[in-house]
Design a binder for these strands. Sequence first.
DNA 1: TAGGCCATCTGGTCCT
DNA 2: AGGACCAGATGGCCTA
Length: 166
Amino acid sequence: MSTGSAASDAEDDETCHRRTTSPLQSTARKITCYNPSRYSDEDLEDDGAEGRNKQERRLSKAHQREARQSQRNAANARERARMRVLSKAFSRLKTSLPWVPADTKLSKLDTLRLASSYISHLRQLLQDDRFESSFAHPVNLTWPFMMTGRSEDDISSTVRLCGATA
DNA sequence: TAGGCCATCTGGTCCT
DNA sequence: AGGACCAGATGGCCTA
């Protein structure tokens, strides 16, 4: 799987070529492949002012396409960076969860569920005012663990999560 | 092989 | 206008 550490333009290009297989992406590649230098002298040769105007309009449109594609590439890079930040945040969240071995594979969804469950557990400890036993090992936060759905979207039943979901 | 998960691309929308 | 955010689409990888 591509880890997506595309920081440089070169890397962006490489990523693009590796993954441009869908119709949409091949369309994008077509646009990317525009090369101003492909207009030969013959192309630039014209039969007067009208021809020159045509040629300028064509070049102008090509430049606009190029600019749009350049903006799109920049936006893609920003989006990749943003998603990397998000993934790192998930990783940090995972490492802050106790009773989950560091090498445990945890999907983002599982991480959220487990974090939510852990927060509920801490809140319960505060409410019960039982700080002395706060380091007791909560059975429902072991890994693989049983998670009692308390959130709005996951209330109905006890959810069994297993390592295979990652 | 189907299904889950993920990274990436893309276009739309909102915000500054 | 440009950037951030979001959701949908797509393809690759992995596992049961």
